[in-house]
Design a protein around this nucleic acid. Structure first.
Lengths: 204, 204
DNA sequence: TGCTTATCATGCATTATTGTATGTATATTT
DNA sequence: AAATATACATACAATAATGCATGATAAGCA
């Protein structure tokens, strides 16, 4: 093609990211060549190398694209301090499960991260960023658990640290298994039930 | 080298599998070439291609090597019908966590499966075998949950299906997160606590 | 209006990896 | 003891992917 306008270039960039998201999620990151991404986006490799210096930069941009809405959500939640800490935890996790189950883009990203991407040294920056984002969420929820304990919603013997590690393990594991064998079980229904069970166990 | 005896050949094969396990777990499956596996095993690619037709066959053999002990364990457990279903479930899961945390070979395999291997179409047979093995375990535990419900250890409103999905999600998620950020939390201690919480939640 | 630069396409050289073919020496068989 | 098959090492050809260099065309700007 020829030189397009700036908006067109932005659109091309978006198309490339969309295509990468799809193709990576379908065929795996390292098993997908830049040419295949380009083809899926309807352009040539030249377009990719113009917008992204290499595959890792492409992936980084993919991650950056979802980091923004996540951060927004965290800020938004942080602004409205919730009355009931436990309810907030449950609502957040359920909301998260729902997003994974219904939003195809979130689902594709989760699939890439959990099943279509090898964590090797080269992707360390991406991994670190992912872990850092996770860690922020973990801290949020841990604080909520602490609040719940202080307000007597949970017995004081509960360790907020262990509670949050278990909760995140449960959520991640549910999503991991659900993505691995799609349709094996209804994620939202079973997931909410399992999380409810876990939260009840904390109260006992 | 030269022609060795049959036992030597078997040893070479073992070395190759050991090396593959290590190197795959460290650097990822697709990011590791056959030459690197051979080098780690102290042989050349010729040795690999003599024992395994390609990388997929090598991985399949890796999986086969752990499937045997797992099946043995299942049979062994099946032979001694346990008195207390819930205790058996807990003991099994704790045993599993312990194995992952302490046995470096099990740990390497789990790491490969969860973090160092892209699930693409080509590894479908491996994935299917993995899922089938999982499914057997899931059925075992589901039956145990049913038994626990029938014997009044759990309230009848509990769905054994959902219970087992949640439990496996929890265990897998704990291992997944622990492997992702090694040393982040003590797997056995926190894991047992979280599982205990979950099981208590089922009783409520 | 003319120059510069952004947006891509196309072609090329390099590299890495794979699979196989061949070689070789020894174990195993007859 | 001769023949054969095994257990590898080595060499080679084919493929594919990457990164870059170059080309083309129009947008943005003075």
């Amino acid at each position: 093609m020829v030189r397009r306008t700036k908006e067109d270039a932005l659109a091309t960039r978006s198309q490339l990211l969309d295509a990468a998201e799809r193709v990576f999620s379908e065929r795996g990151v390292t098993h997908t060549s830049m040419a295949q991404v380009a083809e899926a986006a309807g352009v040539t490799r030249g377009a990719i190398y113009h917008h992204f210096s290499n595959k890792m930069a492409l992936i980084e941009s993919l991650m950056e694209r979802v980091r923004l809405p996540i951060d927004e959500m965290r800020e938004q939640i942080a602004q409205q301090p919730e009355f009931d800490a436990l309810v907030e935890i449950q609502e957040r996790t359920n909301e998260f499960l729902n997003r994974v189950a219904t939003d195809p883009r979130v689902q594709a990203l989760a699939n890439i991260l959990m099943h279509k991407c090898e964590y090797i040294d080269e992707v360390n920056p991406i991994k670190l960023r992912h872990l850092s984002g996770r860690n922020d969420c973990i801290c949020d929820v841990e604080a909520l658990f602490e609040k719940a304990i202080n307000e007597g919603q949970l017995p004081p013997k509960v360790s907020p640290r262990i509670a949050v590690i278990g909760l995140f393990g449960l959520v991640d594991g549910l999503i991991y298994n659900w993505l691995m064998d799609d349709g094996y079980f209804p994620l939202v229904e079973y997931g909410e039930a399992a999380i409810n069970t876990y939260m009840n166990g904390l109260k006992a």
